[in-house]
């Protein structure tokens, strides 16, 4: 088949189009949040003292970090799913949540006596954290990876990793509503491990399914 002949066929197919990739990603992300919420409520649910906890800065700050991570990952994913759309500054967005967390860690070092640092970082829920964050990320990932496939990521592994970051950000947000360890020292010690696992898995899956 010559190129001109191929063009005949492509032009004849002009009328059939798919939804814009942003629209699909918007709806998939919404669905991912709902799915994670349902699974969260059906399994561990929020901690019993959540209304008291919600008055403390440490508890609320966890959501700044996790939801911030999800939001920045969502933005970068929108860019990564369209060829040539990524701007150099976009990567900086992904640093916002980690930098905020590190600042909070510094503040915690000042406000908590040194003798308690190790115990605070170890916490009571490390195993829960490592288990539930990936588990709450499964459904979001299952909804988001097809949306990535609908797009056209020119760097599939990277786009997959950011998809994993979004899914894990959603998963971690719900887990944080259950976890009773609110110190930034705990968050910085354990959350990244669970999140990194999801990011790695998503990246590997994407290299197989997100090529086009």
């Amino acid at each position: 088949m010559k190129t001109d002949e191929l063009i005949n066929a492509l032009a004849a197919d002009a009328g059939r189009q798919k939804r814009p990739v942003e629209v699909v990603l918007d709806w998939s992300t919404l669905a991912a949040c709902i799915a994670a919420a349902v699974i969260f409520v059906l399994t561990i649910g929020p901690r019993p003292d959540i209304s008291e906890a919600a008055t403390t800065g440490r508890f609320l700050f966890k959501f700044v970090v996790t939801a911030g991570l999800a939001a920045s990952a969502f933005w970068v994913l929108l860019r990564l799913s369209r060829p040539g759309a990524l701007r150099r500054g976009d990567w900086g967005l992904l640093l916002i949540a980690p930098v905020l967390l590190l600042l909070a860690v510094l503040a915690e070092f000042i406000s908590v006596p040194q003798a308690q640092w190790a115990a605070t970082a170890t916490g009571q829920n490390s195993l829960n954290c490592l288990t539930w964050i990936p588990l709450f990320s499964i459904a979001p990932l299952a909804l988001l990876l097809p949306a990535l496939r609908h797009g056209a990521p020119t760097r599939p592994a990277l786009a997959g990793a950011v998809t994993g970051l979004l899914a894990a950000g959603i998963g971690a947000t719900f887990y944080a509503a259950n976890c009773t360890d609110d110190s930034p020292l705990f968050v910085v010690t354990w959350y990244p491990i669970g999140i990194a696992f999801v990011v790695g898995v998503a990246s590997v899956i994407a290299t197989f399914i997100a090529r086009w």
């Binding site: 191929l6 798919k18 814009p20 990739v21 060829p83 797009g151 056209a152 086009w212």
Partner: peptide, 16 residues
Amino acid sequence: VQETLLAIHLKRHTWR
């Protein structure tokens, strides 16, 4: 050329 044209066609919903 041909593969790129096909990709442009099938992914044209990713252009704004």
